[in-house]
Design a protein around this nucleic acid. Structure first.
Length: 201
DNA sequence: CAGCAGATTGACT
DNA sequence: GTCAATCTGCTGC
């Protein structure tokens, strides 16, 4: 049953299986609320980054820099970083302190604040597929890296949307060819476009 | 349609 | 200096 949106609890993020959490994030709702302006969307695509052992991860081999420091904190906070000097990429940190696992959010389906998101994107067409475009639509920037996802301007909610496994496409991650064999791991999850059925509001 | 270069900053050699 | 968990617009078939 579903008694309205619930903010995801810390326990959701602090499990030990980052790949499972990436899968579970499909259908969850990401909300930002800056200056009283609320924008949100359903998460439709994610990728898991499994820390130490994962060549594609910023924390591979225990690498630790000021930029990726949030990855080493307890699950439930944001890790936002700049890619190609332009794009702010939003990740959800998982697992317990010291284990730098994270899930990259690659796509959302817009829900609230469509006009605001279009204005931020500077386009008549609202594109929110792609990790760089969704952060622009939601106004997420690197300054939000390290923020708690349960009580800040960025929150993740459970709206009771159930994503059936038959509607989920699993495959290798994108844009990480440098990661050798790890580039082939099935760590990418997305909702099949034909099943992007929105919940009745 | 495909393919590619430009944008622009942080991390590392 | 080079490359990076990318997107867009322009070129040319």
């Amino acid at each position: 049953m579903n008694s309205g949106p619930k903010i995801l609890p810390a326990s959701f993020y602090q499990g030990s299986d980052v790949v499972r959490i990436a899968r579970e994030l499909l259908g969850k709702v990401i909300v930002t609320n800056f200056n009283g302006i609320r924008t949100s969307g359903i998460i439709t695509e994610t990728e898991a980054y499994a820390g130490w052992a994962d060549k594609a991860s910023h924390a591979h081999g225990g690498k630790r820099t000021p930029r990726n420091e949030p990855m080493y904190a307890a699950g439930g906070i944001a890790y936002v970083y700049l890619c190609y000097g332009i794009h702010h990429l939003f990740n959800v940190v998982t697992n317990e302190p010291g284990i730098p696992h994270a899930v990259l959010v690659r796509a959302i389906h817009p829900m609230e604040g469509l006009p605001t998101m279009m204005k931020r994107r500077g386009s008549e067409k609202l594109t929110t597929i792609g990790p760089g475009t969704l952060t622009q639509a939601l106004a997420i920037r690197t300054e939000h890296s390290g923020m708690d996802l349960s009580c800040g301007p960025i929150q993740l909610e459970d709206h009771g949307i159930v994503v059936k496994s038959t509607h989920v496409i699993v495959g290798p991650r994108i844009g990480i060819d440098y990661a050798g064999a790890d580039a082939l791991l099935p760590y990418r999850f997305r909702i099949a476009p034909s099943h992007l059925v929105l919940p009745r509001s």
